[in-house]
Amino acid sequence: MILAEHDGKKLNNVVFNAIGAAEIFGGSIDLLIIGKGVDELARLASKIDGVDKIIKFDAPHLEHPLAEDAANIISEIGQDYRVILAPHTWFSRNILPRVAALLDVSMISDVLKITGDNTYIRSTYAGNVHATIKSDEPIQVFTVHSSKFKAVGLNGGDALIVDSKAPEPLNLSRWEKERKIESDRPPLINAKVVISGGRSLGSAEKFNEVLSPLADNLGAAIGATRAAVDAGYAPNEIQVGQTGVVVAPELYIAIGVSGANQHIYGMKDSRVVVAINNDPDATIFQFADYGLVADLFEAVPEMATLVSKT
């Protein structure tokens, strides 16, 4: 069973990777959709390749699923499953450990590879160490590092939609509101190109002024280091790294970023990495396919101009 993450209308892309991971186990695959007014979403999801059943819990109190209610549902039906997984996002990281505890099984976070026979590779120590773990739990509960698994397609499937009755709300918590950043740029997590800026940009104005033209011309999402976020140059939501978002775009451009462990963790699966830094010894160059030793305040505007010409 896969816990699907969605906004009521669309599944988060990473769910397709999680389904790809589930296929490795070779059994039948059910997708769990918890939400409010998700008939249309369930219908769309039923077309996904390789999914046998869509299990839908549709109720007003599930519009913004609280961990307590979601875990209650999943642990209840989860008894009948051999594998329960989800993408390693903050959404699932809130819910799945609670599910595992209710099922009295251990959980494995952020699986990079499934090597068969309930054996997994995951990263620890901020990505500096890979551990191979074998689990003898009767139910395997884990989250997957989405970019490491192939996404399944969206047209071949014909899954059965099963409508399940949601249990009464537990009323342990209530949802009040959410604030998501509005942007014309592609969302960081799905972007093909990401450009990230560091503390060296010096101010919120400069961060914007220097990075926006390049991002616009590349159709890129903008990311930031924690140092840039802490200094108030960029909003929390765009922090790339261990404590922020993990991205794996086609092209990642690190601009004035030193290359701390915790930042590398969030971008090292990018296909091509470019670093622009004026310090030839900066750690980031060890992780870059192409490094340019230059002053970012000159190089980035030049790049923006050259890109717009092509």
Binding site: S106, I133, D136
Partner: peptide
């Protein structure tokens, strides 16, 4: 625990990159 760590290793390194001279 029903989880057993079989081994720990260094993650595969990215292949070494190159420096470019300009944009």
């Amino acid at each position: 625990s029903k989880l057993k760590t079989i081994n720990v290793s260094e993650p595969p390194q990215r292949k070494e990159g190159i420096k470019v001279k300009d944009i």
